[in-house]
Amino acid sequence: MMLKFFDVKVFVLACELKNLSAVARELGITPAAASAALKRLELALDTRLLQRSTRSLTLTQQGQSYLPHALKALESLEVGRQAVSGEQLKGNITLSVPSDFGRNSLLPILLEFQKAHPDIALKVRLSDKYVDFYSQAVDVALRYGEPEDSSLVSLPLVRDGERVLCASPDYLERWGTPQHPQDLIKHNCLHYSGDDTLDFHWRFYKDGQRLSVKVQGDHLSDDGDYIRQLAIAGAGIAYKTGYDVKSELADGRLVALLPDYQKEKAPLHMVVAHRLNFDASLMALRQHLLTALKDA
Rank of each mutant, 00 (worst) to 15 (best):
A83R: 13
P156C: 04
E148C: 09
A296G: 11
V153Q: 13
N92F: 06
E42G: 12
E173W: 04
M2A: 13
V271L: 05
L122I: 11
L198K: 01
L95V: 03
G176K: 00
L122E: 10
A34K: 02
P98I: 00
Y205C: 04
K90T: 14
R275F: 11
A238P: 03
D128S: 06
Q88I: 15
S193I: 04
A250E: 14
W202K: 06
S154I: 08
L254M: 04
T54R: 08
R203W: 00
I185S: 02
A14G: 09
V245K: 02
H269M: 11
L107N: 12
F6G: 08
T291L: 12
V213H: 00
K294P: 06
A33L: 13
R125V: 14
V131A: 01
Q88G: 15
N277H: 13
L211P: 01
L77N: 08
P259L: 09
Y261T: 00
L13H: 08
D132H: 10
G161D: 05
L106C: 08
R143F: 11
V23E: 06
G145T: 00
A83M: 12
S99G: 08
L190E: 02
A235I: 00
W202R: 06
S76H: 13
L50M: 15
S85R: 07
K246V: 09
K294T: 11
Q62W: 11
L41A: 10
P118V: 14
F204A: 00
G28P: 12
L282P: 03
H274K: 07
A167Q: 02
V138K: 05
S21T: 09
V213M: 00
S76P: 05
G194M: 01
D132G: 12
S151K: 12
R159E: 15
A73F: 10
Q229T: 05
G91L: 05
I93M: 03
G236R: 02
L254P: 01
D196V: 04
A24E: 15
I232Q: 02
T291K: 14
A37P: 10
V153G: 02
P147I: 13
Q62A: 15
R253D: 10
L74S: 01
L155H: 09
Q182T: 07
L268G: 08
Q62N: 11
A83Q: 12
L152V: 03
S35M: 04
L285F: 08
L290M: 10
I120E: 07
K240A: 11
A70S: 05
D119C: 13
Q216H: 08
G236L: 08
S154M: 05
G242N: 06
A70Q: 03
G234C: 01
L43H: 07
Q82F: 11
E112I: 13
S105K: 14
G224C: 09
V213Q: 00
A83W: 13
V84H: 09
L230F: 09
K186V: 00
S135T: 15
L190Y: 02
L258K: 00
L165N: 00
L106N: 09
P181M: 03
L3I: 09
A296P: 06
N92Y: 05
A83P: 03
R25I: 02
L43T: 15
